[in-house]
């Protein structure tokens, strides 16, 4: 074979190899880029959907307040709001513990979307953690000392504290503060004849903005055994400034209901056997609603918040790929954090 033919043969073979390699390499290079663009579009698309749910008020107007109404179009914003202000009743209706809660299916139908899954997680702007430090019984009363810690994303926050204690026929309040280390102490004295389940309710407020306010509740047994978990005896569902109390066990008799906020407290007026009117307090603060009563000879104290935050509602994205969007929203003049996890058609 002449040398020219061998030359041509090798050159052609090399060209074919390089062309095939180029094609393979181009495919490998371009496919991830194209799918990356799709991801980018999908993220923007899902973000727009999420933003729509928190800046639109949905329909019919005021669907949150009316317990019998299921929204035709889903939107959590307060009617006529522009700046991520959410309606406290619409948010409360996402809480599965509420009697008036929307189901996930109802929410998806109102969103009018297919192949999109959502999960809403509302939490407070600050975390308030309470632990019982000590208790000393002297004479006819017992003094409790609580350690209170306030943080935001694990970073300590200096706050002013407003504390209330609710026990059997007993109500008291005090003020305290957390230092720059986020730690504070509250002491409460409770008469010994008010034995039974007691609640310490703490409101923490940042000194620079009243909208940065959060609450924490701690249940403890005052000269009695450990309290049962919350909502053992009654379910509390606040909506449209009315608290609905539904007994979970028979032989429950209700005694008193209270509403607390930073700086304000009030006994609730009963409008029927199981409903109470929630007053509108001045100032920016979440409300804690407390109901006391008896189950046979057991005194109970149970509570909920209004709006019913923290809450989680929607699809379960555990071990699943999804997009996550974070917002700071205002509900009833108080800041809350909202995380929305979103899964689209390709995820």
């Amino acid at each position: 074979m002449p040398a020219t033919s061998i030359d041509t043969f090798f050159a052609c073979t090399l060209i074919v190899i390089v062309v095939v390699m180029s094609m393979a390499a181009t495919t490998r290079i371009v496919v991830p880029y194209i799918s990356g663009l799709q991801d980018l579009n999908e993220e923007e698309y899902l973000q727009k959907i999420v933003e729509h749910t928190i800046v639109s008020s949905g329909s019919p107007a005021g669907w949150g307040q009316n317990q019998s109404v299921t929204p035709e179009a889903f939107g959590l914003a307060e009617d006529g709001s522009f700046s991520y202000e959410l309606d406290l009743d619409k948010v409360s209706r996402l809480n599965s513990q509420s009697t008036y809660a929307l189901s996930y299916l109802e929410m998806l139908e109102a969103l009018r979307l297919e192949n999109v899954a959502l999960r809403f997680t509302f939490s407070q702007i600050m975390d308030v953690s309470i632990t019982l430090n000590s208790n000393v019984t002297e004479g006819d009363s017992t003094t409790y000392s609580f350690n209170i810690s306030v943080s935001r994303d694990q970073a300590p926050v200096a706050t002013s504290l407003q504390c209330y204690v609710v026990a059997n026929n007993f109500l008291n309040d005090t003020t305290s503060s957390t230092s720059s280390s986020g730690e504070g102490v509250a002491e409460m004295e409770i008469p010994n004849d008010s034995n039974g389940t007691a609640l310490l309710i703490v409101f923490a407020r940042a000194p620079y903005d009243t909208r940065v306010t959060a609450q924490g509740v701690y249940a403890f047994g005052h000269l009695s055994s450990e309290p049962s978990p919350n909502t053992t005896f009654v379910s509390l569902s606040p909506l449209n400034s009315t608290l609905q109390v539904d007994p979970n066990v028979s032989e429950v008799s209700l005694e008193t209901a209270y509403a607390f906020s930073y700086g304000y407290e009030s006994a609730l007026t009963s409008t029927s056997n199981e409903t109470y009117t929630i007053p509108n307090f001045l100032g920016s603060s979440p409300k804690v609603l407390v109901v006391t009563g008896w189950n046979g000879s057991t005194f109970f104290t149970e509570w909920t918040t209004y709006p019913q935050v923290p809450l989680e509602m929607g699809a379960n994205f555990e071990d699943a790929e999804c997009f996550s969007f974070n917002y700071v929203v205002t509900i009833d003049r108080v800041f809350y954090r909202l995380n929305v996890q979103c899964g689209g058609p390709s995820l």
Partner: peptide, 22 residues
């Protein structure tokens, strides 16, 4: 052959750019 190698080099360079942009 030279042109093909050059095109390979260009393609591999392009490959790095879009992913970073995204």
């Amino acid at each position: 052959i030279e042109a093909l190698f050059a095109s390979l080099l260009i393609l591999s360079t392009i490959a790095l750019v879009p992913s970073q942009l995204g």
